[in-house]
Design a protein around this nucleic acid. Structure first.
Lengths: 201, 201
DNA sequence: TTTTTTACAATACGTTCGTATTGCCAAACC
DNA sequence: GGTTTGGCAATACGAACGTATTGTAAAAAA
């Protein structure tokens, strides 16, 4: 009945398995360590297989961040909002903690994001990921601040956009020290909680 | 009279010229684009010359960030503190604005820092740069906040360490949007000034 | 049942890489 | 004034690279 579907193997599954290996390598050795053979070895497949699924290395690199974006999106869609109906403050906290590299999965995502950054400068296709995502996150945070203000939990004289920026900055700047082991995820969480306490009254 | 000094050419000048070329390439193409020949071409020298001054590629890469650290240090030592005897607030603002990639020089420094980050995870020698520098910056900011508190310019109930963290986070998170052209340096400056206005009374 | 297509594995090719080696000129030293 | 040394340029070499090409077993299509 499906027309465009692969005949016998699941193309997406194959591509994703290869992308997984690539992301693993990028996260602990950087983009420079990416070669078709290295990815093949990490994925436990032949280099020929990679060639079969990706026309060239650039396409492979591009697919890998697309895949990572998809992974992140999945997590946000599924388990988005801890339980039932969170307060704006709970939602805010959840979003902020989501951005810090507190476990292996998030650590990998963080490192991959960093690794791709310079590539984005020259490559418009890659830029899109950041250029679309960042303002969306700012907007989400600002909206949550606004909601809390309307509920009377945050002083009305605070500028929601500025507060969003401040919150994001605080969370975002936890990345490097956490990844480098200068600070534990718990300390990073405490830093965020401290400011949330001050913001909410 | 000097004993250990090079005979006729200035070794540091040669090494620095090569490091300059390397940093330029890293900033606009990433670490993956670094090859001995590419650096030689950018520097306008022969590959043999690079081999003469650096035992291998790793040493070259290591020297380049050391050189960048030296450059930054130079700037801070020379023109450190805008004029004469700044107030804590002026000093704070100066330091924060110093971290945002607002011109070509700072933009390069910022991009190189990002590019080296993943390498630092595996290489203890490189880690030192970040691991020493970051807490020092935090301490400087916290000290300035404390000084302003003692002068009565910041409310005494603010925790200087937390405020330093918040300020640094705000400044630090301006990096990606500025580098990617999502935000102008002026907008980033405005964000910092907004929060300084709120912090100081 | 023959033929085509899918899904690879394997190999081959030309290039680029890091680095070792060699050569060579000018200055310094004895 | 011969010899050593410093400062390179040039070349050489083996490994690794991205990618093109070829081979092949199985499944699908005809």
């Amino acid at each position: 009945m499906p027309v465009d579907v692969p005949r016998q193997v699941d193309h997406k599954a194959r591509r994703d398995q290869i992308a997984e290996a690539l992301l693993d390598i990028v996260a602990d050795q950087g983009l420079e360590a990416i070669s078709v053979r290295a990815v093949a070895a990490r994925a436990g497949v032949s280099a020929g297989r990679i060639q079969h699924y990706f026309a060239n290395k650039d396409e492979l690199l591009a697919y890998a961040i697309e895949y990572q974006d998809w992974l992140v999106q999945q997590r946000w869609n599924e388990q988005a909002w801890p339980e039932g109906d969170p307060t704006p403050r709970e939602a805010l906290r959840w979003v902020l903690l989501e951005t810090i590299p507190r476990d292996d999965r998030r650590r990998r995502e963080w490192l991959v994001g960093v690794a791709y950054l310079i590539r984005m400068l020259a490559n418009p296709n890659l830029r899109t990921h950041y250029v679309d995502g960042l303002p969306r996150l700012y907007r989400l945070l600002a909206d949550l601040v606004r909601m809390a203000q309307e509920a009377g939990d945050i002083a009305p004289d605070r500028d929601p956009d500025r507060e969003a920026e401040l919150l994001f900055g605080l969370a975002d700047s936890q990345g490097p020290p956490v990844v480098l082991g200068l600070r534990t995820p718990e300390q990073a969480t405490a830093a965020i909680d401290y400011y949330l306490d001050r913001l909410f009254r």
